[in-house]
């Protein structure tokens, strides 16, 4: 790791699509740094799958790599097919909270349940960014969005705890205000043998921040910092005190046979007995 980090070596020379101050850029940068620090000279051993939404633009087509930009929410099924056929490739999924925890939620749960050995990075901006700021399954209670003009009447989903319960090997949540830990989490996720999930709570000043009184990226990052509590702290806090908080940290790290392990084991046995 003597070489200096430069995101350029992993990127195509195309103008990025993100708004100024978008957290997606931080997530992209953290990921490429993680890849660099894991000594990948290029992305030739990676395949990226993403759905539809701003976050899904992070890998595709900007990364100099194979990328499959799927239909909305279906990146994980496509990644399942890729990984099973080519188990030696590093398959990484990027998606927004709407993409992975809304329309594609069941695939996320089942990938975790199967311990499918991929890394899934969910950029949680708490809103449907690309379509202009509609309520998401992760939008905080009461928040005003274009489709909840009187405030959101639903509770937000805790996707990280959900994948832990479903059987993920690794799961961590950080915000874009914690970029070093976010990057370290991504490194661990990439090194994990089984299903690894990273939730990156991220700012969308354009479609969310300005509607909830956090006009700039800096305002949003300050809000993330002030409201983040570690898992350890959270355990000591009363439920009602946690209402507006973002619990950050590593939720699980365990290793056990992966989906490709068992599928190929079945194949070996079937071939021998045929």
């Amino acid at each position: 790791m003597t070489e200096k980090f430069s995101a350029r070596k992993y990127l195509r020379y195309i103008k990025l699509p993100f708004c100024q101050g978008c957290g997606g850029l931080t997530v992209m940068n953290c990921f490429l740094r993680a890849v660099h620090e894991l000594s990948h000279k290029d992305l030739s051993t990676f395949v990226f799958c993403s759905g539809i939404g701003c976050a899904s633009w992070i890998p595709s087509p900007y990364f100099k790599a194979d990328s499959i930009h799927t239909t909305h929410g279906r990146s994980i099924p496509v990644a399942t097919g890729v990984k099973l056929v080519q188990p030696n490739l590093n398959v990484v999924v990027f998606g927004g909270d709407g993409d992975l925890a809304g329309i594609g939620l069941s695939h996320l749960i089942h990938a975790a349940r199967r311990n499918l050995n991929i890394t899934a990075i969910m950029v949680n901006n708490m809103i449907y960014g690309m379509t202009g700021g509609q309520v998401a399954p992760t939008t905080p209670l009461g928040a005003e969005t274009t489709t909840t003009p009187y405030g959101n009447s639903e509770y937000p989903l805790d996707a990280t705890r959900l994948v832990v319960a479903a059987g993920a090997s690794y799961a961590a949540r950080w915000t874009t205000a914690h970029h070093t830990r976010l990057k370290e989490g991504m490194k661990k996720a990439l090194k994990t043998k089984g299903f690894a999930f990273i939730e990156a709570v991220s700012q969308c000043p354009t479609a969310f921040g300005r509607r909830v009184g956090l006009k700039t990226a800096a305002d949003m990052l300050r809000w993330f910092k002030e409201n983040s509590v570690s898992i350890e702290e959270a355990e000591k806090m009363a439920e009602d005190k946690l209402m507006r908080k973002i619990v950050v940290g590593e939720f699980i790290h365990r290793e056990f046979p992966t989906f490709t392990d068992t599928v190929y084991e079945v194949m070996r046995e079937a071939r021998n007995s045929a």
Binding site: I68, R74, P77, V78, T80, G81, V82, L84, V85, H110
Partner: peptide, 22 residues
């Protein structure tokens, strides 16, 4: 490899991924 997915959307999704994997 033969797998059962969680629904038909995922089934065709996995087939598409497998096809791109060769």
């Amino acid at each position: 490899i033969a797998i059962q997915m969680e629904d038909e959307i995922a089934s065709l999704g996995a087939v598409i991924g497998a096809s791109w994997a060769g």
